[in-house]
Write a protein that binds this DNA or RNA. Structure first.
Lengths: 347, 347
DNA sequence: TTGTAAGCGTTATCAT
DNA sequence: ATGATAACGCTTACAA
């Protein structure tokens, strides 16, 4: 009211002056750190609103408080998969009054360097990592700064960190079980990067399901590569070259692989699902459009859970918690169920 | 070397002590703000590396420097469209030593509130906004804090800000021209939210192309709605109800609309592209998978350009620059060109 | 070329 | 319940 035309940011002392109280008191009502008389609190709040005062975050964190900022480092961004996790992270962070400081690896900047920089600048209260090739050095560094770390998609024992993962074993098993129910015992596995945690766990699930159904997996039909469409295409071309015909069913450890495989199959004249059934993993947006049956991964929930875990760690409610989220099989047409025509036809 | 096992963050004074120089000198070599003797610089740098010292960013910005942080506020995140813009933003920001502070509107939190909070907390040097229903209040607020603003997808005169947009007119015109070349003069326009800048510009492009080709647009075939699959589906169902048959071609102002339209067409037994040609706009990931011909929007480049504009404004190299990026038509099968079969067949 | 010292806007520890 | 006042770690005149 007094100087509301002040064209700069209002500060704590502005509030103090207009209220006639000390900075300590204002700080107390703003943070609720100690008792303040109702009248004083009222008076302060009025001035705060009048001025549109918001504490300067730099000063706040310099004075030893939290940054109220979560660091998020992904190896990639640019498709719905990562975006949905980010969405969950952001929603949860906003919900608890935190912001997200994002950093994505773009190839030219080493992931480790990225993480270290953010860590050392002291801008963040916690770090949320996904799919980075973490090594001991990085683990040591995070620990050294006492910054809580939450891993998405993989628990790491060496790191005293929380993690949120999905039940890869059950997810893969459900897909295989579905294929077996269709009567397809001759199934090929496109497992992507065999060295990853996800891949190993999913393979485990496949073996369990096979054992339970009493079918023997043909080991020569388990082929690795990367988690890309290209890799899926190559795997199919190779198998076609070797066997002359595809297996009755293919379970791919992610949707990209499945899409690449389906394209290769189509290009070689094989029909999905009449001649080859295909199931993917992740349930990305394109899966729905393509009628691809896939194991749904709750990306949003993964993000939300990770953010909550990180914030809890910051506010020292708990540390080192491991959350496992479940998946579910989304049945569409590519497995042989349903009966919808494709939306763009052959000319 | 002296106390490298110090398990906490090294500070400026640690460096000073080990070098035997003043804080001012260390600051000078770190920021290159003034001349320092080669020997001193050398000595300081050695200690800095030895300690793994990185300036505390809170202290830095409190002392009156830049935050080295760009605020990014989107109304949404969660699909490839936004993610790709974000990717470009992040790459450019990292390139110039900036971080991204992201904030997405999740419905429950008013977008304006989000922006104002970030602005007032003083955490960011510049603000990058997209598709928010900006109003005068917000504009005034950003100006009040002297924070440069960069708008994505729409130039705003009232706001002294930079912007990056695409050439909507030319993009839409190229799609229409392609349809006309196919000989389809009977084209329906699914224009999405008619109140948006994008929609208006694209419609302008359509009219220009029609005029140039000498065809008259049927105004009853120009239907609005939202930019969703659902809206596309509804538009088709409605036109089918009214006319009994679809127009020979449909140009949709985004890919979601096109996908919804194609699904509705398929469900009603109409074949794309034999009976109805469809073109979309944006060229999202699913467009490629579905064989949808679409106007490609350089999302990555939009992001990169926006970040550079913002940073230039912060470093006062330039302000209020407007960039217009061009699009290109990506021809696939849905317009009637090409001859690839769909990858998942009707059972 | 280098050092001294005054902030920057908070929070937190004492007193009162 | 409230007020002084000392950090927090850095930048930047102003001196030397």
């Amino acid at each position: 009211m007094a100087d509301e035309t002040n064209n700069s940011r209002a500060t704590l002392s502005d509030v103090c002056r207009l209220c006639g109280v000390s900075s300590a008191t204002v700080s107390r009502v703003l943070n609720g750190t100690a008792k303040v008389s109702p009248e004083t609190r009222e008076r302060v709040m009025r001035v705060v609103t009048e001025l549109g005062y918001v504490p300067n975050s730099a000063a706040r964190s310099l004075a030893g408080q939290r940054e109220r900022m979560l660091g998020v480092v992904f190896p990639e961004i640019g498709n719905g998969f990562w975006a949905n996790i980010l969405k969950g992270l952001d929603a949860a962070a906003a919900d608890r009054g935190y912001h997200l400081l994002t950093g994505f690896s773009h190839g030219h900047l080493d992931e480790r360097e990225l993480v270290l920089r953010v860590l050392r600048e002291g801008r963040i209260d916690a770090l949320i990592l996904m799919n980075l090739r973490l090594d001991q050095e990085l683990a040591a560094e995070a620990t050294r700064f006492k910054t809580p770390v939450v891993l998405i998609d993989r628990p790491i024992a060496e790191l005293q960190a929380g993690s949120v993962t999905i039940d890869n074993v059950a997810g893969a098993a459900s897909a295989m079980a579905h294929l077996f129910e269709h009567g397809y015992h001759d199934v090929m596995l496109l497992i992507g990067d065999a060295a990853t945690y996800d891949s190993k766990q999913r393979l485990l699930g496949c073996r369990q399901a096979a054992a339970e159904a009493g079918v023997t997996l043909d080991e020569t039909l388990i082929v690795g590569g990367t988690f890309t469409e290209e890799s899926g295409r190559e795997a199919i071309e190779q198998i076609l070259e070797q066997h002359g015909r595809p297996p009755r069913a293919i379970f791919c450890f992610n949707d990209n692989l499945a899409i690449g495989a389906m394209e290769a199959l189509r290009d070689r004249g094989w029909r999905v699902p009449e001649e080859v059934a295909v199931i993917g993993f992740d349930d990305i947006e394109s899966a729905r459009h393509l009628g691809l049956t896939s194991v749904h991964v709750p990306l949003n929930e993964i993000g939300r859970t990770a953010a909550y875990l990180a914030i809890d760690a910051v506010e020292s409610k708990a540390r080192g918690v491991n959350h496992v989220l479940s998946t579910r099989l989304v049945v569409r047409q590519s497995c042989g169920c349903g009966a919808r025509a494709p939306i763009v036809r052959k000319v």
